[in-house]
């Protein structure tokens, strides 16, 4: 049984090693284990076989420039559409959820709980194929547009909760000051509450943006025309035509090029916010 420090009964069983020496020994052991594991992986893997399959320079080169000019560009465009749409719809849902009118609250709560509870892939699939047939609706942008609407709806459900939390985090005194100056509820919301709420939720909202970037890969399900393809669809098609995993690796790197700066930004904003409080 590990004894507490300073417990005299302990001293008898532990060899007379200085506390600091013991700490160095433990840390040193951890480093040695790490080096051994790395060496094992590097030496045991057959790099001659793995390298051409995962990173074939010729295949990688053949992907450019289309993988950037079409696929990465489309990923960014779909992300922006889904994010802007998600924030706008999420704002409406958040305001409905805070509304004094009970049916609005019910409606918003039902919407949010439904689409947070469903897999995004299923919603996108439904909007791309089931909804257009059932409603005889021709979605703008074809099935890609319909899939995007599904993505907007899913993300809006999450963003709505973020925005609601942000609005509720604005001190009540701000609303009271605005109302006591004669500002009506609408102007109070627009000019006083929302600007502060969005400042508060910038880090979680940026996180939502990163999630949407990754979720645009789910749009592969709708089946895209060549010039509509985003990174994952593009890489998947290249995977089957080249019989190499290289396109996946290149696509993965391009995702990281987009998401890593954003996650760094989130971390920076969170540090900044902490200081500001």
């Amino acid at each position: 049984m590990p004894g507490r420090a300073g417990d005299p009964a302990d001293g008898r069983y532990i060899p007379r090693v200085k506390r600091s020496t013991r700490r160095y020994l433990v840390q040193g052991t951890l480093y040695v284990v790490f080096v051994l594991v790395v060496l094992f992986v590097v030496l045991s893997a057959d790099w001659e076989r793995i390298q051409p399959y995962f990173f074939n320079p010729e295949i990688a080169a053949s992907l450019f420039p289309d993988i950037v000019l079409t696929a990465a560009k489309n990923t960014v465009i779909y992300t922006l559409i889904a994010f802007v749409g998600g924030v706008l719809l999420g704002l409406v849902l958040a305001l409905m959820k805070l509304s004094p009118v009970l049916p609005y609250r019910w409606l918003a709560t039902g919407f949010i709980e439904l689409f947070r509870g469903l897999p995004a892939l299923l919603v996108i699939f439904a909007f791309a194929f089931a909804v257009p047939i059932a409603l005889e609706w021709r979605p703008p942008g074809g099935s890609t547009g319909a899939g995007l609407i599904g993505l907007i709806i899913v993300s809006s459900a999450y963003i709505a909760e973020t925005i609601r939390a942000g609005i509720e985090a604005v001190p009540k005194g701000q609303t009271e000051a605005a109302r006591s100056l004669g500002l009506n509820p609408l102007w109070t919301m627009i000019t006083v509450v929302l600007p502060q709420a969005f400042r508060i939720i910038t880090p979680p909202l940026t996180n939502e943006l990163v999630i949407i970037i990754k979720d645009t890969s789910l749009l592969f399900i709708v089946g895209m025309a060549l010039d509509q393809r985003e990174l994952t669809t593009f890489a998947r098609d290249a995977l089957s035509s080249t019989a190499s995993a290289t396109p996946l690796v290149v696509a993965a790197l391009l995702y990281l090029v987009i998401t890593l700066p954003l996650t760094q930004l989130v971390a920076k904003l969170e540090r900044h916010n902490k200081r500001g409080r």
């Binding site: 001190p171 009271e176 000051a177 006591s180 100056l181």
Partner: peptide, 14 residues
Amino acid sequence: RTRIGIVFQQFNLF
């Protein structure tokens, strides 16, 4: 309310 100015304990500046 535009005719009644209020000053709060916590200032409540925007």
